[in-house]
Amino acid sequence: MKPPRKILAFAVSFAAIGALIFAAQNSLTSIRSTHRAPPSMAFVPQSDKIKPYLLGFHTAYADYLWIRTTLYFGSEYLSGGQYTWLVRMVDLVTRLNPDFYPAYEFAGLMIPDVCNDPDAARVILERGVSSSVANKWKLWFYLGMIYYRYYDNKKDAAACLARAVTQPDAPGFRLAGVAAAMFRKAGAPEEGLEFLSFVYATSENPEVKRYVQGKLQAFTKAQ
């Protein structure tokens, strides 16, 4: 039995429309891939002055901004862009939610090199170390590394590492050794010695005590 002509005409029309849609879809996708704009930054606020207008949802907005930041970073990385808005976005995230640890870590690790802006990273990290985030020792460590690498300021670097040692969960014995070595390089061995003695006296961990004692002996011998 032959299908009625009406049904056949409908089937052919649907198939034709489907084929045209398929072709148009592929053409549009290909044009868009060559003219792709980065994720819109239009709704990234200028400053944290908008905080009162967020009606208490500033942390949720910080989360949203953080997602936009990572998308922006990815798109700039893939297109070899200049990361123009990156510092401002990370800064805003940490202003809106001062306890947002990943943003601080990102600032410490990426901003000095990627955006070539160690000053901005230092300012954001200084905000981080005065906040109540967990893993604060890492932020002190990154700050110390920025002082050491970009400012060639070994004394401040050593002071930051010394602060890192005193934070909860810090890998004390390793950091203490690095901090003491840094003090020595900065031309302040007596401060390094004082710092090691302080760690030795205050630490309750026998492993740390043993490690620091070894460092102290090596330090005294070197002097």
Binding site: L20, I21, A24, Q25, S27, L28, I31, R32, H35, R36, A37, P38, P39, S40, A42
Partner: peptide, 20 residues
């Protein structure tokens, strides 16, 4: 986004999108 960033799309894109 293209308008915000000033990335000009070819006229063919607009025609194709309308056809789509």
């Amino acid at each position: 986004d293209n308008i915000v960033y000033g990335i000009v799309l070819p006229p063919a894109y607009y025609v194709l999108a309308l056809v789509y």
